[in-house]
Design a protein around this nucleic acid. Structure first.
Lengths: 190, 190
DNA sequence: GTCTATATTTTGATAGAC
DNA sequence: GTCTATCAAAATATAGAC
């Protein structure tokens, strides 16, 4: 059962995706909830708290997911496939919250440093997977930063694209996405 | 020589990238210019006008660039390489403005419809290049939407990543990026 | 071209009745 | 748990002096 606070956070995330944190007023949010702005404060302490809960819970979900993948001792190529799946699953569960995670993190106050640390750590872990994959001849010896950037940009933009797919099969999308990211789009000559 | 209006737009774009259009006040902008907020209005009509000029000029630059590429009658794979180069060049020239183009377009008032049309047309052109590339056996017969999404996400995120590269060689970056997008990261067996 | 002063609206948030 | 009423601060923008 969804609490009133959870409902507020869910509705807020939807509005934040449409207009961004700063452009959404407490009156906008209240109106979307069918109540008055003052009533929101019976469930949450501040607008800032809403943003914090949306972003930090998602950031921690990604961190925990990656830690689990790292413990698996699979090949780097299989770890990468698991990371793609992690992003598809979290993004499809919460496309609205993903918008805040990607675009409104700079408006975090108290937890900004914590968020930036989680984000930097995540990026560094992914970088090390790619680098080790190159060393072990799983991946081609291209510019590691370019590979990292390309993959991460695609994964971080999933939230923009997933809602357009009506009948989402996360397993199938993960597989297709891994295929494109790992093997590119070039037609190999048989 | 840069006019005062151009300077305002340039400084505004930098602030918009840091905090987003809605969170940047005219006082913030004036302060960054070393003047008072009221003085800004001697050069620009409104905050909205600043956003409009940043976004529309960039959107039209992309549209014109793509039209030129389409007229070239190159192979689809070479058109795609030219598109990558187009994004690298425009994004590196104006990383600040690219942030508004990507994240603040929904705050456009008068020109929102025009922007959305340019954007949809651009996406459709790129889709047709990929689709024709698949038909002509230049590209692998994967899901076209997944290929389009992956490439476009990476290209649209360039503005976030280019500033971190200190000594940018646009030619080299374009080549490396095309390589990764087209051929993936997988190590082919010799 | 910039300033001070100010008009008008809107914002996040609180107090207290029901 | 929601409401009305309200506050204090901050927002965009204008008027007019220099």
């Amino acid at each position: 059962m969804e609490t009133r606070k959870e409902e507020i956070i869910r509705v807020a995330a939807k509005l934040f995706k449409e207009k961004g944190y700063s452009a959404v007023t407490m009156r906008d949010l209240a109106s979307a909830m069918g109540i008055k702005a003052a009533s929101l404060y019976n469930h949450i302490n501040s607008k800032q708290q809403i943003l914090k809960e949306i972003i930090i819970s998602l950031a921690e979900e990604f961190t925990q997911g990656l830690q689990k993948i790292q413990k698996s001792k699979k090949s780097n190529i299989d770890k990468l496939k698991d990371i793609v799946k992690l992003h598809v699953e979290i993004s499809s569960k919460n496309t609205f919250g993903m918008a805040s995670l990607n675009n409104d993190w700079m408006h975090l106050e108290e937890k900004l440093g914590y968020y930036l640390q989680l984000r930097a750590d995540y990026e560094e872990e992914l970088r090390s997977i790619i680098a080790e994959g190159v060393t072990k001849n799983e991946f081609v010896d291209d510019n590691i930063e370019v590979m990292l950037f390309s993959i991460l940009s695609t994964l971080r933009s999933l939230y923009l694209w997933i809602p357009k797919k009506e009948d989402l099969n996360t397993e199938e999308l993960s597989q297709q996405l891994s295929q494109v990211l790992i093997n590119g789009i070039n037609k190999k000559i048989d």
